[in-house]
Simulated scan of single mutants.
Amino acid sequence: MTTTTDPGGPTGSIYVLAAHPHWRDSRVNRQLLQAARGVPGVDVNDLYGTYPDFAIDVQAEQARLARADLLVLLHPIQWYTMPPLQKLWLDDVLSYGWAYGRGGRALRGKDCWLVATTGGSEESYHPQHYNRYFFDAFLPPYEQTAALCGMRFLPPLIFHGARSASPQALAAHVAVFRERLAGYPVWPELEHLADCVACEVPASDRPQEHEEA
């Protein structure tokens, strides 16, 4: 398990959940992972390193998440969404009765921050280009996952064109990420963000909690 912790660090409590199926082939995410490991007070989890068999320790993950004020989802965008192990983590860890639904208040008031990369350029996310939509069109699943858990979804940090960006642009992006982690929760824009929205799940939608749809 890959963890970096320093209870005496200057940051708020942060849990970075990093997911990349092929770290050796990563140009940007690998540097972001290394930057997160270097920030005091940040708990860093390389999901594919921790769970190569995809057998997630739910209790351990819930404990780490419960201790954090900020959850960082760090990954490349693959087929317009997150890598499969990160999706499995959400399925298993954000359980009904713990993260959302009746009695599920463990994450209320926390923050969620998406830090992602795309292979395509920013211009490719346009109605007149091959991705056909602005990038914001792919954010609702992230936003609503946070909302259902009572979390505030912070403005994402997206790095487009990861395969072709210049070394200077990459270095500047990594520096911004590191500074953001080190400075949390003292981000000026957070003062203007609305509180977490209330998304209560009616009991009628989950009449028998242990049955699958």
Score class of each variant (00 low, 15 high):
T2K: 01
H173N: 13
H126N: 11
P40D: 03
L74E: 10
E212K: 13
A203L: 09
D6W: 06
R102Y: 05
C112I: 01
A182E: 10
P140Q: 03
E211H: 13
L47M: 04
G150D: 04
L65G: 03
L190H: 12
L114P: 05
R27S: 06
D46M: 09
N45M: 13
C196F: 09
H129Q: 15
I56K: 04
V58G: 11
W79T: 07
A162H: 01
F54K: 06
P10M: 06
W98L: 03
V28Q: 02
A198S: 11
V42G: 04
P40M: 05
R108C: 10
Y125T: 11
V93L: 11
L90I: 12
C199E: 01
D69E: 15
V28I: 15
R102S: 15
D205E: 14
P155I: 05
A137T: 14
A194G: 15
E200L: 14
E179N: 15
Y51E: 14
A116V: 13
H126K: 14
I77P: 00
Q59C: 04
C112P: 02
P207V: 06
H75K: 09
Q208E: 14
A68C: 13
F134L: 06
G109V: 03
T81W: 01
P52C: 03
T4M: 04
H22G: 06
A198W: 13
D6M: 08
Q208H: 15
L90Y: 02
H160Q: 04
R152A: 07
Y48V: 01
L157R: 11
D136F: 03
G38M: 01
P202F: 10
